[in-house]
Amino acid sequence: MPIGDWFKKQERNTARSPAVEKRIIPDGVWEKCKGCNEPLFVKELERNLKVCPKCFFHFPVSAYERIYQLTDLHSFEELWGDLIPGDPLGFAANKPYIDSLAKAKDKTGLNEAVVCGRARIDGFQVAIAVMDFGFIGGSMGSVVGEKIKRITELATREYLPLIIVCSSGGARMQEGMISLMQMAKTSAAIARHQDQGLPYISILSHPTTGGVSASFATLADIIIAEPHALIGFTGARVIEQTIRQKLPKDFQTAEFNLAHGMVDMVVNRLELKRMVARLLDYLGASGVKE
């Protein structure tokens, strides 16, 4: 089934703007690889899960693309897609927060930076949340925090494994302390899922930093990173300014995190679904497999 058809199917679950259709089926037939500069046939790139066949550069993927890549066809059932962010502080810096939200919605076709729902992965029933970096840098404000909490609570209630694909610059500063508290709120929900003895696999894609890396993203039983993904707490620029020395070349990459024992494995996107399914099997997902 072509990816376009799959997205048509998803329309039942979520209202999507025309802008998204255009982005998913780009006008251009060729795209230049950011890894090796080679021109790539867009259709082929999509078939290859947005991984360059020549240099294995991992292109960013939207939340729905990721769900398409990772879950069984037609198995995804979206939840709480109509949760909409507010503007608790009346925040307006270089531009009003509500304008940033409107622009992000227009650009991504999403109401917020995370998409949640039930799905199957190689037959295993899971609760899944996928973040979208295109929506204000995947930042976590009230809605992201609330949706992560809800999907985790649903997983706890229904004895489901939890899968979260992260991609976020951290807490959303436009919602101030309310955003910061989402770190505690999501971590508290994950703690209950842990205490129920249920499996949680976290997939850290580029980038996973700040308040997301320091909350639900790293509380998983198994942490998988995508190749070369930036993963860390403090931004490199801030660190450089503080310590006034050059950072190592591979600093905060997935591979750096693997070497320092912070993630279990670095997995190529083409192998990701299979690996998640194999892990789910080991993590006692028996009984939930249909």
Binding site: A184, A191, T234, Q252, M262
Partner: peptide, 27 residues
């Protein structure tokens, strides 16, 4: 002012250390 911003802090898992405290405080 915040968690220490440094190379070693990242190497030793600043993010994970904070996350684990958040989970623990809640329970």
């Amino acid at each position: 002012p915040g968690a220490y911003p440094g190379i070693e802090a990242e190497e030793r898992g600043q993010a994970i250390a904070i996350a684990q405290n958040l989970a623990e405080l809640s329970r």
